[in-house]
């Protein structure tokens, strides 16, 4: 049974090190169903790493990950967790991800990109996968580009196909890793518009972004990460307009230094 408001994803004492550099220094986070969380922080704060740990594209060094009340992986020595591949594949099928670099499959058309997950992971029939893929492409405004290969699409269009590809899996949680950071400024709007439209589905979403204005309007909750820890956690109104921490204020000031 899934009810809006119950905890869908939980991390406890999450640590991640790359070599001797500790990027995440103990993250505790409960994500409730339907929440839209924007994760802010300067580069190197660990925000992308945190997101990538949530679908275990990065293997956490320590800590627990709980999806829908079920712990992922088995505890191992030293607080680490051992993950089996089949278990990770099941988790990732339920936690979608949209990448900064789109990462569309270049040898497939837009439609085939969106069909791939339902077809080869969910075991849907070709006809059904095609039908839902077409519907999702239309949802992101690209119904007419179904037969185009990614090379023929603009960055904004590619990212919208990537969003459709993630949606086609009907994920319980959808992760966006700086989805507009590699786009030309005039293409940012169309992608943010599509993401904003997803709000009406009530789907749980986590978004790493530098678009403060968008985060303010889109998110129900904002996290500010600094040096691998969550420094601030609250509604957009509070975090962006009256932050508790000096670090957060300095970070926000950099974005608002030039106004017109």
């Amino acid at each position: 049974m899934t009810v809006a408001g119950d905890v869908v994803l939980q991390v406890e004492d999450l640590h991640k090190s790359f070599g001797s550099t500790e990027v995440l220094k103990g993250i505790d986070l409960s994500v409730r169903r339907g929440e839209r969380i924007a994760i802010l922080g300067s580069s190197g704060s660990g925000k992308s790493t945190l997101l990538r740990c949530l679908n275990v594209l990065e293997m956490p060094t320590r800590g627990r990950l709980i999806l829908d009340g079920e712990a992922v992986g088995k505890p191992a020595a030293g607080g680490a967790t051992r993950y089996r591949e089949a278990e990770l594949n099941r988790l990732r099928a339920r936690v979608g991800m949209v990448f900064q670099q789109f990462n569309l499959f270049p040898h497939m058309t837009a439609l085939e990109n969106v069909m791939e997950g339902p077809l080869s992971v969910l075991g849907r029939s070709r006809a059904e996968a095609r039908r839902t893929a077409q519907r999702h492409l239309e949802r992101v405004g690209l119904g007419g580009k179904a037969d185009a290969h990614p090379a023929r699409l603009s960055g904004g269009q590619q990212q919208r196909v990537a969003i459709a590809r993630a949606l086609a899996m009907d994920p319980e949680v959808l992760l966006f890793d700086e989805p507009t950071s590699s786009l030309d400024p005039e293409l940012v709007g169309e992608v943010l518009g599509v993401i904003n439209d997803l709000s009406e589905d009530g789907r749980t979403m986590l978004l790493v972004t530098h678009e403060l204005g968008f985060a303010y309007h889109f998110a129900t909750r904002i996290l500010f990460l600094h040096e691998g820890r969550i420094l601030e956690d609250g509604p957009p109104e509070q975090v962006l307009k009256s932050p508790r921490e000096e670090r957060t204020r300095r970070f926000l000031d950099r974005f608002t230094a030039f106004r017109f």
Binding site: L57, L88, L91, R92, A93, N103, F105, S120
Partner: peptide
């Protein structure tokens, strides 16, 4: 590119299928 591996894994594809399809 590593992004292709990540995109396949993010969809929940196993190693063999990812290799064959992507």
């Amino acid at each position: 590119e590593t992004g292709q591996w990540e995109a396949g894994r993010a969809l929940g594809m196993g190693r063999a299928r990812l290799m064959r399809r992507i």
